[in-house]
Amino acid sequence: MEYFLALNPMALLRAWPGSIAQGLIWGIMALGVYITFRLLDFADLTVDGSIATGAAVSVMLIRGGMSPVATLPLAFLAGMAAGLVTGLLNTALGIPGILASILTQLSLYSINLVILGKANQPVSVDNYPLVASLRYVTAGSVSSRLLFFAGLTLFLLALVAILYWYFGTEIGHAIRATGCNPNMARAQGINTNFIKVLALMLSNGLVGLCGAFYAQFQGAADIQMGRGAIVIGLAAVIIGEVLLGKFAAKRKFAFAYTLLSVVLGSILYYMVYQFVLWLKMPSDYMKLFSACVVAVFLAIPYLREKNAQKKAQKKGVVQG
């Protein structure tokens, strides 16, 4: 009873806007993860490194005097470079995808340290006109807060629109075909190796971009900030699919809805995350929590299918 009395609903409501902003920002990354995990069918762990690379590039350039907005495309390019390395390790050198991405991830740890110069580099909203900051959510007038959310939401919508368009083009079709059926893709003259590298670059570019946003949002780039990032990205993708997949599939622009559901999955993830923290779960346990969320949501579709098969089998026996 004492435990429940100690919980303050207002505290949760005050914290949620920050969670939503964080979810929107990680939505950029989740879109990147969707490209590799779902479209390319490639479990790409590069992202744990490339998100910090994007963050490091952005923060160091801001500290060096560059406009925070201008660092965003450069963070995107840095992420693309990471994706290129994983892609070449896999296609040109024949290293299995997961291992190739782990190698890149590990080497990025050193590279990120070199970029940052030390483990943590702050970038304060007091000194720089950052594109995103927790301050924009928690302080200032209501209208300025709403403006920030509107801007961020618009940015995500634009990103979804661009990806929707891109995956409807010839080259986008080639990426989807390569992920779905590489034999068919090659038989239709698609260079599946090139396509893999391209998709990995695009995906990690988005992850790098997310890193730039997130570093500014939290006011620092940290060498550890990418740890477990892939799990959060997967959580967003899978939560979006499990909760909204059926809804999206029936729509006219099904693919656009699927991409949106990924972003919504990311927001939901951070709202639940905040909720669990609010329930006084020690923050040390949060990585365990993230892993459990992904495990559960990955298991649901599998168990559902297995159960359905069992039922169908039973029925068959009775009828036969």
């Binding site: 891109y166 409807g168 083009t169 010839e170 080259i171 986008g172 079709h173 080639a174 989807r176 075909a177 893709a185 239709q188 003259g189 698609i190």
Partner: peptide, 20 residues
């Protein structure tokens, strides 16, 4: 139609034109 469009571009450069 997407499958057929992929086959219809066989041997051609695949760029940023709309897929179908």
């Amino acid at each position: 139609e997407e499958n057929m469009a992929i086959a219809y571009r066989r041997g051609q450069h695949r760029g940023l034109r709309w897929g179908v």
